[in-house]
Design a protein around this nucleic acid. Structure first.
Length: 268
DNA sequence: AAACCCCACAACCGCAGACGG
DNA sequence: GCCGTCTGCGGTTGTGGGGTT
């Protein structure tokens, strides 16, 4: 990066966030390496992108997953496996990271509960080798190990996709599906879920007009959503896809509240 | 009040695909 | 067609906070 400067890692400071927001406002949310360089943040483009996508993006919903979202995640995971980004696209305002984390924690819990239930009901049968907590995380995503027929710390929350692999995994998936869709206790079907989500999307779209274009690309955050702290710092409105030439002009009157000056030399 | 445990989430890493020169 | 760079994705780890003992 900037020669001699050490790349920063770890948690982002508020200052860095604001700085990043400003530069994304100027250059759009694409050229991350470029943004990382000119912003003077000693971060990698990757890191900047991640921070933006997972945390700073104005279209993000924060807070707990709704029941509809939970069900949708379950359903889509059953369909697509660990294609988190694909799943995330179906859940406006949620990130792949968020969904991934959600799946890990909640599904692990579910798996444990399920196992408890099973071992309670069937004290005999199927080995039930006393769950040695064994390897942490190394068996993730190993289809052979997903939904192990009742052994060990069940890794089914990270199944690596149900697409093809049948056998025990399929069995569990079927159970899951029955639990959520088909034979659900309250008969909540996918259609219902979609309806609900459409409704709530519609509502949030009304509140957040124009945040997204049709393909979920961020368009113009500065124009909407009443001032959550950082949004006040947005440096411009439609500077989104700006050429470097133009940006020079902007920098000549750099507006951002005493932030570290951007690396203007970059342009010359 | 302190120690411990568990959960939730942010962030990093490695890899693969896309893209431009 | 090859190579280098960038971007996106999935997996994994680290850490802070809240709850429990």
């Amino acid at each position: 990066m900037v020669e001699g400067q050490e790349i920063r890692k770890g948690p982002w400071t508020e200052q860095e966030d604001i700085q990043l927001i400003c530069f994304v406002g100027l250059f759009g949310d694409r050229r991350w390496d470029f943004i990382a360089k000119v912003s003077g943040l000693n971060r990698t483009g990757k890191s900047c992108r991640l921070r933006w996508v997972n945390y700073l993006h104005p279209g993000l919903k924060r807070g707990k997953m709704t029941t509809q979202e939970e069900r949708l995640v379950l359903e889509l995971h059953a369909k697509w496996g660990n294609r988190w980004s694909k799943i995330a696209r179906k859940l406006p305002g949620r990130t792949d990271n968020e969904i991934k984390n959600y799946w890990r924690t909640h599904m692990r819990k579910k798996a444990q509960e399920k196992r408890r239930g099973l071992s309670a009901s069937s004290s005999s049968s199927s080995s039930s080798s006393s769950s040695s907590s064994s390897s942490s995380s190394s068996s993730f995503n190993n289809p052979a190990k997903e939904f192990p027929a009742d052994t060990g710390p069940v890794k089914f929350f990270d199944s690596g996709g149900s697409e093809i692999s049948a056998s025990s995994s399929t069995k569990k998936k079927i159970e899951e599906n029955q639990e959520l869709g088909g034979g659900d206790q309250n008969g909540y079907t996918m259609d219902d879920i979609w309806k609900d989500i459409e409704v709530s999307n519609h509502e949030s779209l009304i509140m957040n007009q124009d945040v997204y274009s049709e393909d979920n690309n961020f368009s113009c955050p500065a124009l909407n959503s009443a001032a959550s702290s950082w949004e006040d710092y947005y440096c411009g409105d439609s500077l989104w896809k700006m050429e470097e030439e133009e940006s020079k002009l902007i920098f000549s009157g750099w507006p951002c509240l005493g932030l570290a000056q951007p690396n203007q030399n970059f342009f010359y």
